[in-house]
Design a protein around this nucleic acid. Structure first.
Length: 544
RNA sequence: GCGCCAAUAGCUCAAUGGAUAGAGCAACAGCCUUCUAAGCUGUAGGUUAGUGGUUCGAGUCCACUUUGGCGUACCA
């Protein structure tokens, strides 16, 4: 049910008579007070100044030109400085219930971006240790953004980019090797800057059980590193499964070298005269492209910096035919992506297709103190520990409920409480309550009757109806703005309206037609809650 | 120094340039012989960090200031 489109249609007809309506986009929004109507426009206010007329007078002229269909709109009012407020016919609004019943799981989805291909890259943690609570926000938001894009029609690939070469991984392999030698009885010192985690010892133990002493002359980069990578990756994949994430693509940075893409890219930069040598290093001319300063792409040691493979990697995303490329990083990366975008742009790629999302950090509070996370120092709480403790639903809800631009405080003690302090239960409770209602009413011989929904005239009923009408637009807006937190906000408002309805409007005991109309309404509400929770990756229980 | 993000009720946070800034938690007072009280109702709580500006209209946009987080590598 597209109320705004309906009004836009009305106004499009008006613009023949009232020329000033042609120049300004006409926006409708839901006023924050019921007595200002269901939808409102400020068009008279925005147009009045240019016309040098009184906005209320302009509003009156607009309203006088509208021909009303009373089956759809009850009344139009001019209010305040010149707002035009539309009050829809309650019976007409109640028709949304029929639509929701017909569409069920599809309600809220959109075909707007059908056939458009998107790649969402997230997590992208190198396999040097388990995913921590610190990775949780990236993981959950990335997956939810992908869900949102799918809901509006995109064909989405979830992608995990990783690097299993380089110094970090060498140190990882050597950490396992030293732990292995310790198991053999060598009394050697374990360096402070090596990976301290217990999982390193477990991997060493595994190798020791399988191979005994036979690996004592093995170097760090062979079996030690490979085993570590394999074990850690298995662990990461399991962790992702635990919170409902399934990657489609794991992209290994190393394949960029194997496919000679790095050298090709270097040649391309040289051909286009975008690079130059200085002090033994190769620099990219980013200052000419509007960035602050030139940056090194190949160190004097001959090794590339991260920029070069990152640019090559994004070129593959273009070559793989994506129309939308989403990268989700923590705020510690916020200085890196402009170089990459500028590099791509200089080669003629449309960097507008790349949407970089930066989320702010998560502060973990335990016993009232900030926990500083470090994989290297093994000072962390794993994402598994968290989801074991509080469950997938709480984890996913918690990380999704805040704007990514805001710093997130994650108080472990509160999350573990599983009390009513946690809003996810509020939503799930509403869903479970509806299941319970449907069970009880069915036992009473009452059925859902969508043909009686015109009887739903009470404030609580109408408020619910108006809210579920907004849902598809909310999904579309959230997807287009990559704002996952809007869904929890919407659902909490919906659940609140439902709980109010529940308190005020009984079903069993009401007149039969009304009771059956109310059943149709709560079924529709349940569908919307479920669809919303589905986007978040949170389960919708029938019983709590 | 420079860049990005933030600052809103005691706490954690919402708010698409609109009308009287909203939720949850915490506090206080009520509501279960009736579809799940993980719920509902009410009370209290605000100079939207500050100062200017743009606008018919600013929590929202702009400038400056203050405070905090993250960066500012020939680390990723």
């Amino acid at each position: 049910m597209k109320l705004k489109e309906y009004l836009s249609g009305l106004f499009a007809n008006l613009s023949k008579n009232l020329e000033y309506l042609n120049n300004t986009p006409i926006l409708f929004n839901v006023p924050n007070q019921a007595n200002f109507g269901d939808l409102s426009t400020n068009i008279a206010l925005s147009v009045a100044k240019g016309l040098k007329r009184n906005p209320r007078e302009v509003a009156q002229e607009i309203v006088d030109n509208i021909s009303l269909d009373r089956n759809i709109i009850d009344k139009i009012e001019i209010a305040g400085p010149g707002f035009i407020n539309f009050f829809f016919n309650p019976e007409y609004l109640a028709q949304i219930i029929k639509i929701i019943h017909a569409q069920e799981n599809e309600y809220g989805k959109s075909k707007k971006y059908i056939g458009v291909r998107a790649n969402v890259e997230f997590i992208s943690a190198n396999p040097t240790g388990p995913l921590t609570v610190g990775h949780g926000r990236n993981a959950v938001v990335g997956d939810t953004v992908a869900n949102l894009l799918e809901a509006v029609g995109y064909d989405v690939d979830r992608e995990y980019y990783f690097n299993n070469a380089g110094r970090q991984m060498r140190v990882l392999g050597d950490s396992v090797r030293l732990r292995y030698l310790q198991l053999m009885g060598d009394n050697l010192e374990f360096p402070e800057d090596y990976y301290q985690g217990e999982y390193i010892k477990e991997i060493a133990q595994k190798l020791y059980s399988e191979f005994g002493d036979s690996l004592k002359d093995e170097g760090p980069e062979g079996l030690f590193k490979e085993t570590a990578e394999k074990e850690i990756f298995n662990d990461i994949i399991k962790t992702m499964e635990n919170i409902g994430i399934k990657m489609k693509i794991f992209y290994n940075e190393n394949s960029l070298y194997q496919e000679d893409r790095i050298n090709q890219l270097l040649r391309l930069f040289k051909e286009k005269n975008l690079s130059y040598e200085n002090e033994g290093a190769l620099w990219l001319k980013l200052s000419e492209l509007g960035n602050e300063q030139d940056k090194v792409i190949v160190k004097s040691s001959g090794e590339p910096t991260y920029r070069l493979p990152d640019i090559a990697y994004h070129i593959t995303k273009f070559e793989r035919g994506y129309d939308l490329i989403v990268d989700l990083f923590g705020s510690d990366h916020n200085a890196t992506y402009p170089d990459v975008l500028a590099g791509l742009k200089s080669l003629g790629y449309d960097s507008e297709k790349i949407k970089v999302l930066i989320h702010q950090f998560v502060t973990i509070l335990q016993n009232g103190e900030i926990v500083k996370m470090s994989t290297r120092k093994a000072n962390y709480i794993t994402l598994d520990e968290l989801s074991d403790e509080v469950g997938k639903d709480v984890v996913r809800y918690f990380f999704n409920m805040r704007s990514i631009n805001s710093h997130l405080n994650f108080d472990l003690d509160v999350a573990k409480k599983q009390s009513d302090e946690n809003p996810v239960f509020y939503l799930q409770y509403a869903h479970a309550r509806i299941s319970s209602i449907l069970k009880m009413t069915s036992e009473q011989g009452l059925k859902s009757d969508i043909n009686q929904v015109g009887l739903l005239r009470k404030t609580e009923e109408q408020n619910l109806i108006k809210k579920i009408i907004e849902y598809p637009e909310e999904v579309l807006y959230s997807a287009e703005h990559f704002e996952t937190h809007r869904i929890p906000v919407f659902l909490e408002e919906l659940a609140s309206l439902f709980h109010k309805f529940y308190t005020e409007c009984r079903i069993i005991g009401s007149e039969k037609n009304l009771a059956e109309a109310r059943i149709a309404l709560v079924e529709a509400v349940q569908i919307v809650i479920k669809n919303g929770l589905n986007i978040l990756g949170v389960s919708a229980p029938n019983r709590m």
